[in-house]
Design a protein around this nucleic acid. Structure first.
Lengths: 127, 127
DNA sequence: GTAACTGCAAAATATTTGCATCCTT
DNA sequence: AAGGATGCAAATATTTTGCAGTTAC
């Protein structure tokens, strides 16, 4: 529960998310920082950045964890529930700026929802 | 691509899904049939039953694969897209008999969607 | 008989944990 | 100085693969 420190790892990872508009898979980050950062560090920094409301995560279609920058979340409270879209051709995933209205579910208290869409992204449709 | 055979493994697994109304995690099946079936066999039979339109699968909140009986799917074509609900207290997951209307997504061809809900199930709410 | 199925061991993949050391404040 | 962060090795957990032997049709 400590305060996040401005370390090399945090700076490097944050920088990637600044430049990348789409979501990034942890496995991809591990490859990108192969010789620079240890994978354990990567997992831990991402976890911390999510706790702090800077990133949010979701699971892609093969159970791999993806991270993306939050737009309106705050520490320990990720309120922005938008769908995520993963392309079957290029494998990339991205956040969609839409709000999906969910109905009431009787006899159940829904706390969190995750909508994952699979298909072809605009780039791959053109090819 | 062969025809599915009526083997002991298939019979045992199908029987579980007959009796169980909720979804079942592969990890749970592996434990249940610990001494009876090999885990490799379990993975392979489930995969085949899904191909044949008898079961469908989805990923739960920790990336674990769940299977449940299909109600209206046919071989190689799983058309029934309903949400899945996973309880944070008891961990059980189930299919919900609701259809969620999705909007059109511009510049994208959505082929498949998966809505996963997290919260408390009716049984756990009572306790 | 033959294609499909099974079990076992081993590999592959993703993630977590323990611990000693180093860095930030 | 002290609590947090890092790297490395090893452990977990889930799923996949190869292959030899068995079974269903």
């Amino acid at each position: 529960m400590g305060i996040i420190r401005k370390t090399k790892s945090v700076a490097l990872l944050l920088d990637v998310f600044e430049k990348e508009s789409k979501a990034i898979a942890t496995t991809d980050l591990i490859k990108r920082f192969d010789t620079v950062l240890n994978k354990t560090t990567i997992y831990r920094v991402l976890e911390k950045l999510e706790e702090d409301g800077i990133l949010h995560s979701f699971l892609g279609f093969n159970g791999i964890k993806w991270y993306a920058k939050c737009k309106q979340c705050v520490k320990d409270n990720h309120t922005d529930t938008h769908p995520h879209f993963q392309c079957t051709s290029c494998g990339k995933a991205e956040c969609l700026d839409v709000t999906i209205a969910l109905p009431e579910f009787p006899d159940r208290e829904v706390v969190f929802s995750q909508l994952l869409l699979k298909g072809k992204c605009n780039t791959c449709l053109a090819n």
